[in-house]
């Protein structure tokens, strides 16, 4: 797997060249329960790090998903509309939300790597 970073709000970002693939962590999906809907931004929209980029809904809750990095939305996951369960089945794989064109790679430095995130999650339970 390529380089993956995490935020304290449980978003992940996977870097693939100058493209940042964004979604919610496997831990986040397990906390949310069955995901029933994902509201995604429009392609072409520019999002800033920390700003609301999507909304993920379970039966009883709706949570904002914040952009872990800044960039322009170049693609949204077309499968989530018909099959939002993909977020539960494979949050960090086929359950991705959006792809951004990375605006400022330096922003990645402030995020946790997989080991740091795992340690962070440990502290929550």
């Amino acid at each position: 797997m390529s380089d993956v970073r995490y935020t304290k709000d449980h978003e992940y970002v996977r870097i693939d060249g100058d493209i940042a693939v964004i979604g919610i962590s496997d831990y986040a999906q397990s906390q949310l329960g069955d995901v029933v809907f994902v509201e995604l931004p429009e392609v072409g929209k520019t999002v800033k790090q920390g700003a609301e980029a999507a909304v993920v809904e379970s039966v009883k809750a709706a949570s904002e998903v914040y952009a872990p990095v800044s960039g322009e939305v170049v693609e949204i996951n077309p499968d989530l509309e018909a099959a939002p369960g993909a977020v539960n089945e494979d949050a960090e794989g086929k359950g991705w939300f959006v792809k951004l064109k990375l605006a400022n790679p330096a922003e990645l430095d402030g995020l946790m790597d997989a080991a740091a995130y795992a340690a962070f999650v440990e502290t929550l339970s």
Partner: peptide, 12 residues
């Protein structure tokens, strides 16, 4: 679809 409603979304 009750996530649209006030008791879940509150101010949203």
């Amino acid at each position: 679809l009750s996530t649209r409603e006030q008791h879940i979304r509150r101010e949203k």
